[in-house]
Design a binder for these strands. Sequence first.
DNA 1: ATGTCC
Length: 473
Amino acid sequence: MLNRIDDYIFEVPIGHQKGMRVPGRIFISERLLEQVESGTLDQVANVATLPGIVNYSMAMPDAHLGYGFPIGGVAAFREDGGVISPGGVGFDINCGVRMLRTDLLAEDVAPMMTNLVEDLFHDVPSGVGAKGRLRVSEHELDEAFTRGAAWAVEAGFGVPEDLEHCEEGGRMEGAKPDQVSLKARKRGRPQLGTLGSGNHFLEIQRVDEIFDDDLAKRFGLFRGQITVMIHCGSRGAGHQICTDHLQVLSRAVKKYGIELPDKQLACAPLGTPEAENYFGAMAAAANYAWANRQIISAWTREVFERYFPDARLDLVYDVAHNVAKVEEHEVDGSRERLYVHRKGATRAFGPGRPEIPMAYREAGQPVIIPGSMGTPSYVLCGSAGAMRLTFGSACHGAGRIMSRTQAKKTYAGAEVKDVLTRRGIKVMATHPKMLAEEAPEVYKPSFEVVDVVHHLDIARKVAKVVPLGVSKG
DNA sequence: ATGTCC
């Protein structure tokens, strides 16, 4: 059913599904491909039927079943004749990850690890319905929706340099807070500055391995260094925004006479009010998520400064894993403005792109790929292959291989915690069952997906970091 | 991911 194009590129032919406008392309190893469910391949084919799709419906090596679009899906649509779809972004709009580098050595931090994790767990609220330490006003909430991390910095969370080291400067243009429902506002207001649940985490790590000395130096990373990773998204606000606009776009499908193989692909033609309103609301959720990670970073710095008053915690970079953006790409030899949907995929721009901060522009964009609890995370660097093959995109991590329900039956939270403790990893969570659901064994290891994008020169391996202390919902 | 079904 699949055509092999290359060692790591497989094609879903146009015949796979009625109405496909372009083929599908999966960037994956043969070994990983064996583990991809047939439903995921069908979803890649379904996305290929959407109007205005450019080149291919793409999937990254960590692809798995999602709502409409696969998680690990990348799809770009031309401005003229294309569509925008909430399914191509996901419910957790701008779920993303940022990495802070310290000037501390693992051996110096080790004695304080318990204190640090306990304080982080206490000072950064987490859990499903977590409400924050913050009491933002309606006006401040609007500021977060409109100006994201830029507002957070002005409000005293972090420094202006942080913004340079965020995708989009931590603030997406075009946000429309008036397209955020009262319900989404009500959910979002008390949750600003909270971590959330599931695979979201706040982690203290040690740089364990450097793959590329020059790139590591540019990113300010060295072996034995302490880093901090923050993985979270737009909480209930983004979820509600997605839910609200899916309803609107389901009606738009009929109104504009779009034929879909799956209702979950609800979308609207670019330029219509429905499409513009979703885009504006999505941008508001993305900004909320950037503000959220910015606030959490400030509290993380406060905790470290308690024990290491002179420590520096500089932002390496902050990437979005779930977002749709307008970007220029080369299509058939000419530059075109495209709406690039990334769902469980990271932007991975190669050297020279103006979107990359000056400090990294010659090298390429830092690509941050979190591991699951207790497993390594990776830093890569966007490369030329991404611009040629994937509209400047790479994988985002490793997908689950066991359902939450099955995980709870198979593992006991307390035991998972014991095993991690014996491996020298201090873990705190709001509930033991969360630890069972997030046991390291329920996820595919990240290194396999990372190796695929490295081999394709989509993103080059720079560093591997291992967890030392984890705070989870 | 998510007030894990209004």
